[in-house]
Every structure is written in structure tokens, then in C-alpha cells.
């Protein structure tokens, strides 16, 4: 499963991680690798084992079996060395509500053993960078969800660690704060940080990650670049939007004649979708058949599969980000 370019030593590396909690197997043999300066996305639904993997890589948890290295050090044998080189921002913004934003960052700086003056100047630098200077002297209790997450992320950056692990950094954020967060994360990667990011959002993985490992039921069910993953489930898709449900049967037959395969129906959108091998040639054939059948469709298009479809194909259930409700756990 793990793909790494020849010769480069992965900054985050895991092989065969197994972790059980009583009867529950959280991880059953997870292998991962992230090359220096890249973003590895762990994509999976709630309970897939993403957080457990992050907890092992950040030395919070010892695996039952398997081996992991971060920044060149074994996470079980040399946790202290690993901790000096990582930053972690967890699922919940683990900042202290009864301290000010600045207090939080200074405290973390001191715990990374920065001299006091340096801890203070680093705190101010990060507060400015994350747009929190106006709120720096306020208790975190008064911060919005987005501000807390930014502060939490800032806290993980205090020691300018070469490796950053972000566990669902945008879960529960409104769309605006989410986009802000993405911009911040992209900036970090530009500066050369190696990043592991877990997410339930396909869109997020698609936008941020160089490599994606799709995790389900404690295993990596697929890994590769977003493009490779999309290609791996084959070709392109033709979508046909049918305005009048009465025409559905006729359109369906026309598509089947044109490409030799039955399309899937999306009832909610009144849309038929069919995977095709020959791209534009197939599209032309569909248009011709529809024309002959005398049907006017609302929209017709050729596109690459979405990560949602990749996820569906790989795991047999719907993509984690496609549900209406957002779970914040």
C-alpha cells in the first residue's frame, strides 16, 4: 500500500500498526508514508481509526503491533525526540479557556523549553500571523470556534516543528472558517512543513493532500495521489440531467444503447450517471441517441469521478463527507 519515491526517506512512516481497545480493533495493520514537505491525508469516516493513528504517531498511544517513525525517530522507543519535532492540533481545540490567547502560546513555548523572552516574541508573531492580535489579551473562553482552532493550530507551531499532525482541523467549522483554515495550512506546507492531516471531507483531502490514504474499519483501503485514486476506479463519468421524470426511461435506454451500460439514477437530482471508457466519443454517442429519441435534456456533461465516488467504490458505503449532518466528536 505504501508508496514512496525511491531514495527519499519518509518523514512520517508507519508499518503494520495494530491497536485494539478491549474487543474493538481500532487499527488492523495500517501502513503510511509521507515524504518531506508533502501533505498526507488520512481520509475516512468517524471511527475509521484516523485519530488512533494520529495518537500513535504523536506518542500519545503505544501500538499493540507494528512500527512507526516520525522525523527519523521511533515513536515508541524515543518518544521524547519525536515530541521535540512535532506539532499536534487535535480534534477539539485543546487550548486553555481560562487563559488569554497570548498566555496559551507563551505557556506552550515554555513547555517546548524556549527561553521566556523568545516564548513571548514567538507568541506575538503567531498571534499576528493568525489574525488574533486583537484578541490576544482576551480569555479564550470568549473566542469563536474558528478563532479557537486557529489558536490551537498556532500552539502546535510554537516550536516551528518540521512535522505537523492535524486531526480533523476543520470539523465543526463554518464554511468561511474552513476556507481560512485551508489557506493557513497551504501556507505552512509552502514553508516546507511535512503534514499529516485527517479529514472526513473529500473536498478537503482533494484540495490539500499530495497523497491520500483512504482508511476504513482500521485499514488503508486505498492510497495514492487524488488523481491516481480517481483514475483507479476507471475512466470518466457522463452525467445527464433530465428535467421531466416522464422521460427518464427513454433517456436511460438511449444512454444504454450509446455506451453499452446501464446508467445509475440519482433520484434527488433527477440525474443519470454512467461510467465511460472513451470519453468524448461516448459523450457524442449519447447526444446522438438522445437527439434521435427526440429528448431535450437540461444538462449533459463529461467529468472525472469525484473522491466521493472513489470512496463509495472502495469502501462499499457512502463517502464520509456526503451526509447532511456533521458529527463533532
Amino acid at each position: 500500500m505504501v508508496q514512496h519515491s525511491s531514495g527519499v526517506r519518509p518523514v512520517i512512516y508507519a508499518e503494520g500498526l495494530v491497536k485494539r481497545f478491549g474487543q474493538v480493533t481500532a487499527l488492523s495493520g495500517v501502513s503510511l508514508a509521507a515524504d518531506p514537505g508533502t501533505v498526507l491525508g488520512l481520509l475516512g469516516p468517524n471511527g475509521a481509526g484516523k485519530t488512533t493513528a494520529v495518537r500513535i504517531l504523536t506518542t500519545l498511544l503505544i501500538p499493540d503491533a507494528g512500527h512507526a517513525e516520525v522525523a527519523g525517530f521511533d515513536v515508541v522507543r524515543h518518544p521524547q525526540e519525536v515530541r521535540e519535532r512535532i506539532g499536534l492540533a487535535g480534534q477539539q481545540a485543546s487550548v486553555d479557556e481560562y487563559l488569554t490567547g497570548r498566555d496559551n502560546l507563551v505557556m506552550v513555548g515554555r513547555l517546548y523549553h524556549l527561553p521566556s523572552r523568545q516564548a513571548r516574541s514567538r507568541a506575538d508573531e503567531l498571534l499576528a500571523r493568525f489574525g488574533l492580535e486583537d484578541a490576544a489579551g482576551r480569555l479564550v473562553k470568549t473566542y469563536s470556534g474558528g478563532m479557537r482552532r486557529r489558536l490551537d493550530l498556532a500552539a502546535s507551531l510554537v516550536a516551528a516543528p518540521p512535522v505537523l499532525l492535524l486531526d480533523e482541523p476543520t470539523t465543526g467549522l463554518d464554511p468561511r472558517s474552513r476556507t481560512d483554515m485551508w489557506t493557513v495550512i497551504e501556507g505552512l506546507v509552502r514553508d516546507g512543513t511535512t503534514l499529516l492531516l485527517t479529514t472526513q471531507y473529500l473536498e478537503e483531502a482533494d484540495r490539500l493532500a499530495d497523497h491520500i490514504a483512504v482508511v476504513d474499519h482500521g485499514r488503508v483501503v486505498a492510497a495514492g495521489s487524488p488523481d491516481t485514486l480517481k483514475k483507479s476506479i476507471g475512466g470518466e463519468r457522463i452525467d445527464v440531467a433530465v428535467p421531466d421524470p416522464k422521460d427518464m426511461a427513454v433517456v436511460r435506454a438511449a444512454i444504454a444503447r450509446a455506451v453499452g451500460r446501464e446508467p445509475d439514477l440519482d433520484l434527488e437530482l433527477n440525474r443519470l450517471t454512467v461510467p465511460v471508457e472513451a470519453g468524448v466519443r461516448d459523450l457524442t454517442a449519447v447526444v446522438r441517441e438522445l437527439d434521435q429519441a427526440g429528448i431535450v435534456v437540461e444538462d449533459i456533461g463529461l467529468r472525472r469521478p469525484t473522491l466521493d465516488e472513489v470512496f463509495m467504490t472502495l469502501t462499499g458505503h457512502e463517502g464520509p463527507g456526503s451526509g447532511q449532518t456533521e458529527e463533532v466528536s
Binding site: L60, R83, Q91, Q92, A93, S94, V95, E97, Y112, H113
Partner: peptide, 13 residues
């Protein structure tokens, strides 16, 4: 509950 202990445990303190 708030994950503060986890943050401490992930630091080189």
C-alpha cells in the same frame, strides 16, 4: 475532557 492533558503529553515537557 478538553484535550489539554493530551496536548501536554504531546509536548517535549
Amino acid at each position: 475532557q478538553r484535550g489539554v492533558i493530551d496536548r501536554f503529553r504531546s509536548l517535549p515537557m
